[in-house]
Amino acid sequence: MAFTLAPTSASEGFRLEAHDSVGSTNAIALERARQGDPGRLWVVSKKQESGRGRRGRSWATPEGNLAATLLMVTDCDLKIAATLGFVAGLSLADALDAVVPGGRIRIAPDGGSGERGNRFELKWPNDVLAEGAKLAGILLESAVLDRQRAAVAIGIGVNVVAYPHDVPYPATSLDVLGANCDAETLFLALSDAWSQNIRLWNGGQGLGHIRKRWLERAAGLGGEVAVRVDGDVVRGVFETIDEDCRFVIRNTKGEIVRIAAGDVHFGAVASAGAQ
C-alpha cells in the first residue's frame, strides 16, 4: 500500500511527498520552504535515518515505522505557531483511535493511566502514550523566510513496528499493542484528523478549543509530577495547561508554577526523583 492523503485533506489543498527512506522529514520540509514551497505539504517515509527529537536527541525510524512532517508556511506570530504541536498531538491521538482496535489501558510507572477512558494519552508537551509508554513523539522546527512569513515543520514519529530499547523511559509500538495497522493506514487517518483539528485551531483563534480537547486526553492530570527545567527539578501536582499551553503545577509549597519548556515525569518516577 502506498502513502495517500485522505480525501478531506486533498480537497483542502494539502499535498504529499512520499519517500522510501530519508535522512530527516523535517529537514526536507524546511528545505522545500526555502525553495519556495507554499506549505500544506506532507513529507512522509517509513524509514528515517537521522531524525531528531527534543533537545537534539536522536530519533531513528526503522523500516515500517512512520516519519511524517507537515510543512506549514504562516504569517502568524511564532508563539502562536508553536501551539501547532498540540494540534498535532490531538490529530495523532484521533487517528490512532480510528485505526487501532480497542484494548485495555493499564497504569504504568511513568505514564498516564487511561483513567478518563483514553486509550491514547497526550504527555506535555509533545508525546503520545499508550499503556503509559511512549508510542510517538512530535517535534516542531521553524525557519524565518522573510519579514512576514515563517516556515513551521511539524514532525511526527510513530513506533508502528518497532520501538527503541536504549531509552530512559518506557516505550512501545503498535505491533506490541497487538494493532494490525501499518504506517500507510495510520498516515491516511492522520491526514484526515489534521484537517479537522486545524480548522478548529483556526489560525490560533480556536486555541481555547484545542486546549480543552487536549486536556481531556492529558496524561497525569491531577497527579504528582516532577519537571526538569534547566537542570532544576520542580515537583508538585499537574493542575492544567494555561491559555498559552504552558504546563501548570501547584508545587509542594502550594504555589502555582507555569513552565514553558521541560521534561515531565509522572507517578513513581516523580516520587523517586527525576534524574
Rank of each mutant, 00 (worst) to 15 (best):
G103R: 04
L90F: 04
E243S: 11
G206H: 09
K123Q: 00
F86W: 06
N251Q: 02
E131T: 11
R199I: 11
K212F: 15
R104S: 12
V257P: 03
K79C: 09
C76H: 15
A2Y: 12
P168V: 00
L215W: 10
S113H: 06
A82V: 09
A133T: 02
R211W: 01
H165P: 07
G51N: 05
L122G: 03
V229S: 08
V22Y: 03
R246E: 12
E141H: 08
R149A: 05
G39H: 11
D192I: 15
D192L: 13
F3R: 04
A171V: 07
N118M: 06
D263M: 11
I210Q: 02
T74F: 08
V128R: 03
R32N: 11
V73H: 03
T25I: 04
N159P: 01
R228V: 12
E184V: 11
K123S: 01
A226G: 10
R211E: 00
V73R: 04
N251L: 01
R32F: 12
A143K: 10
P7W: 10
K46S: 14
I241M: 07
D263G: 12
A108M: 13
E49S: 08
E121K: 06
T252I: 01
L90S: 01
A226N: 07
A189R: 00
A130E: 02
G231K: 06
A143D: 07
K47E: 12
F266V: 05
V43M: 13
L41S: 10
A136M: 01
A193Q: 04
Y163F: 15
C181F: 08
E63K: 08
A82I: 11
I198P: 09
R32K: 14
L66K: 02
G89P: 04
R147F: 13
I80A: 06
L41A: 10
E216S: 14
L122N: 07
K253Q: 12
L41C: 11
V160Q: 04
E17C: 13
G254C: 05
